[in-house]
Design a protein around this nucleic acid. Structure first.
Lengths: 141, 141
DNA sequence: CACAATCATTAGCAATGCTAATCGGGGAAG
DNA sequence: CTTCCCCGATTAGCATTGCTAATGATTGTG
């Protein structure tokens, strides 16, 4: 494959990824949480109790930013801060029952919306896309 | 393709897109422009003169948001607003020479970085990915 | 001609991201 | 034991991005 086509693939992949995520982001509305808050909550629920620094690192954000997001989640009763008994500088952030349920019940709205879009494809196209996604995963890593 | 595999493709596509864009976002630093500004400038350079509404629609953003982004690009001399002679309510937004050069010369750092990643693939993989990207464009639209 | 529709902008709000500064606990050196 | 420094989290303050509502200017229509 020539350089020209490679550039074309790169530019279009970049553009399509942006559009896809922007389109899917609208699905987040149903949860009543913004994208960063939903993502942080998901991380807390899935990865169990985390310190603030760990959470910030997982979400690729600075500690003050994450501290404020946690504030908002605490304010909605989705998450709690617990002082770490071993090191009282640190906090352990855990989901409340309500927080866990919001994620489980709401069920990955973004993925669900994406499945809906994939259903409109022909079967052969879905297979070709599946192959492309495998390669995309390597490219993104 | 079964429902289970479709869900798998959807979840992995979502996750891979997020990772890809996060990785590429680091490249933006060198341009001195934020991601939305760089993306808007790229659209203006590639798609030629556009009205504000067209540009907002292309970037999936509301007109006031885009108006402010254009303000910033005008302030840096990367873009100009020209009154449309056919309809004086409308403006035509064009790149300046400096704006075009920033993209062409220094620019498209993200795409350039992505090309580097694609070069590590086997030729057959690049072709399969190219096919997947075509389909992804339809899914994302 | 009057009136509604359209395009862009302005005003004002909330949220996200950052850095710098601060508070308080932990740990090591003297 | 005390002092001094490091470290985790938070607070303060700024810039940017996103939105909706309202305003201005212009176009087209009844």
């Amino acid at each position: 494959m020539g350089e020209v086509q490679t550039r074309d693939v790169a530019a279009r992949l970049h553009s399509a990824s942006i559009r896809l995520l922007r389109a899917l982001r609208r699905e987040d509305d149903g949860s009543g949480l913004s994208a960063p808050r939903l993502s942080a909550l998901s991380c807390i629920v899935v990865e169990g109790p985390l310190s603030l620094a760990e959470l910030a690192e997982a979400e690729q954000v600075r500690p003050p930013t994450m501290s404020r997001i946690v504030d908002a989640l605490v304010g909605r009763g989705l998450v709690t801060r617990i002082a770490d008994p071993r090191d009282r500088r640190s906090v352990r952030i855990m989901p409340t029952q309500e927080g866990s349920q919001l994620l489980i019940g709401g069920g990955e709205r973004r993925v669900h919306a994406l499945i809906g879009r994939l259903h409109k494809l022909a079967d052969s196209e879905r297979r070709a896309l599946a192959r492309g996604v495998e390669i995309l995963e390597r490219v993104a890593r």
